[in-house]
Design a protein around this nucleic acid. Structure first.
Lengths: 146, 146
DNA sequence: TTGCTTGCAAATGATTTGCACTGCT
DNA sequence: AGCAGTGCAAATCATTTGCAAGCAA
């Protein structure tokens, strides 16, 4: 506790903008999300940092989401998954193992990402849809399950 | 009812492979999914074709999913959304309106899709992840909400 | 008949919420 | 003191499931 990282500073700022305090419980959540190598479920979060009450964890994740610190994902499993917002991390996508259910982050080649962005921008004239952000989920088999 | 389309024939086949009958309730579900221009929620499905019992609709969607006829999506809204499997439709992605919550299908430029596939295939050597299919969700504003 | 299907009602389980208490500020 | 934050327990609500009745092969 105490060592204020770059991430902590950014989160403190975003929370302050929403009149929220950066309490120890919220720090534990942010730390738990940061340490994982992919989006995590609530049980995983509780296990990683014990001393978190389930209801408070849910409530704080919800508040952190509104504050733009956290992003909530619904990949269809039993539990929702949470990760730090892309405002606080690098733009990335997800590798979802269809065997064990694990979810890992990946960063794609910038060239691919660029051609994708271009295609999405074109949707505005073809479909009248103004694209904001996007998510790409890749389903398959992770290294452990091959 | 009775006009057997190409789609119906394919579904009948897939169901038969799983020892399932293509009953009228299941036909109504497939028709409801086919008629929509994007993935639909269960309430929407029930509204479109009344005379469907909620529990049977859920049960049949689940069975149809196992049989590879239907795909279930969890975009995070209150209800899950369902669509016909890509074995029965064209490969496509989703335009999700952040204002009204509607979800529409889009087919991307084949060139973009190809470069994407290539990038995903490369994940096998870089990450040890064997990619199967993928989903791309684009968030933004639909034509009606601009 | 045999067994897949259906619909109702009850059960499940992740997430949310009411409320009294704790602890910053 | 005043109010945001916490934790417990109870409430929600989409989805699932048990069971008795319906229907096709």
């Amino acid at each position: 506790m105490g060592s204020t990282t770059e991430l902590d500073r950014a989160v403190t700022q975003q929370l302050a903008d929403h009149d929220l305090r950066y309490t120890s419980g919220r720090r534990a959540i942010v730390a738990g999300l940061h340490d994982a190598d992919g989006p995590v479920t609530l049980p995983e979060l509780l296990e990683a940092s014990s001393d978190l009450a389930q209801s408070s964890a849910y409530r704080n994740l919800s508040l952190l989401e509104e504050a733009g610190v956290v992003r909530r994902l619904a990949h269809g499993g039993e539990y929702a998954r949470y990760e730090l917002s892309e405002a606080l991390t690098e733009h990335h996508h997800h590798l979802i193992c269809e065997n064990c259910g694990s979810v890992a982050d990946v960063v794609l080649d910038p060239a691919v990402e660029r051609s994708l962005d271009e295609a999405l921008r074109a949707l505005e004239s073809s479909e009248g849809f103004v694209a904001g952000h996007h998510t790409l989920d890749v389903y398959g088999r992770c290294a452990n399950c091959t």
